[in-house]
């Protein structure tokens, strides 16, 4: 890791405290606690079904945990929904791609700018100055992101027609476009080859370095995890098994027994 960071890691921005979530009889998360520090890249690892995605869904307001609390910037998040969480400054990508399939790459990324655009439908219908200005400004921002992600050549293609790897990239672009303080990335590199993964890591590191976005990343590739994350939290059967810097996690006997020891694809 670089020695001098433009955005040094600070105090906790997001705290998960004793969170439990179950679906009927299935316990997805059991009393999990960890915190995420401002400007850090935090990996969440754990075997399939460990409750990683469910955790992001709780933070993001899709699921409501039955117990525990989630605190964002010293504010308890209760009775929330994804829309509210977006407004508070947390954005995300989804494990199984949740793009707007029939819309172009550019339009998908423009939706990421939703909260930066507030012309109402009457202003849009009559193309008032405000509506035009805002549209142009936000398009420019999206073009920058498209350039950054090197997807210029496909910006007008409907995303449904793109190969999986590119769709993953577009989804990252959409999340980046929000300029949220915290990004939750659910397996952004799943199904990618080494080359593509390396590229994705570069994007994540660069955004974290240049604008200080706090990243929460679910990833299975231990090479990637140990490489780019500042801290790692390990979930196993819905419980937090360990939480600490990569070097510590690698040496943790519980983690080795439960997860690292066994082969993973």
């Amino acid at each position: 890791m670089a020695q001098e960071r433009r955005f040094p890691i600070g105090s906790p921005i997001l705290e998960v405290k004793n969170v439990s979530l179950s679906f009927g009889g299935v316990k997805a998360i059991t009393n999990a606690s960890f915190s995420i520090l401002t400007h850090e890249i935090k990996a969440i690892i754990g075997p399939n079904g460990a409750g990683k995605s469910s955790m992001l869904n709780c933070i993001n307001g899709i699921y409501q945990p039955q117990q525990g609390s989630i605190i964002f910037k010293n504010e308890l998040l209760s009775k929330v929904n994804p829309n509210l969480i977006a407004k508070k400054g947390i954005s995300r990508t989804f494990q199984n791609l949740a793009l707007f399939k029939r819309m172009s790459v550019l339009d998908n990324i423009l939706i990421g700018r939703r909260l930066h655009m507030n012309a109402n439908f009457v202003q849009v219908a009559f193309q008032t100055n405000k509506a035009r200005r805002e549209e142009l400004e936000n398009r420019k921002k999206c073009e920058e992101i498209i350039e950054f992600l090197e997807i210029d050549d496909i910006k007008n293609t409907p995303v449904g027609k793109l190969p999986y790897g590119l769709q993953k990239k577009v989804e990252l672009g959409r999340a980046l476009a929000t300029e949220a303080e915290v990004l939750l990335l659910d397996e952004p590199m799943a199904g990618m080859n080494v080359e593509e993964k390396r590229e994705m890591c570069r994007f994540i590191l660069k955004v974290n370095d240049e604008i200080g976005t706090t990243m929460v990343l679910i990833e299975h590739d231990m090479g990637v995890v140990m490489d780019i994350s500042d801290n790692v939290v390990v979930l196993d059967y819905g419980k937090t098994l360990a939480d600490g810097p990569p070097s510590e996690i690698r040496a943790n006997q519980d983690v080795i027994d439960a997860y690292l020891g066994v082969a993973h694809d």
Partner: peptide, 15 residues
């Protein structure tokens, strides 16, 4: 269209 194509993602983007 975002609501049409994927409502949960639309909501997560602040719609």
């Amino acid at each position: 269209m975002a609501v049409r194509d994927m409502d949960i993602a639309a909501e997560s983007m602040g719609i």
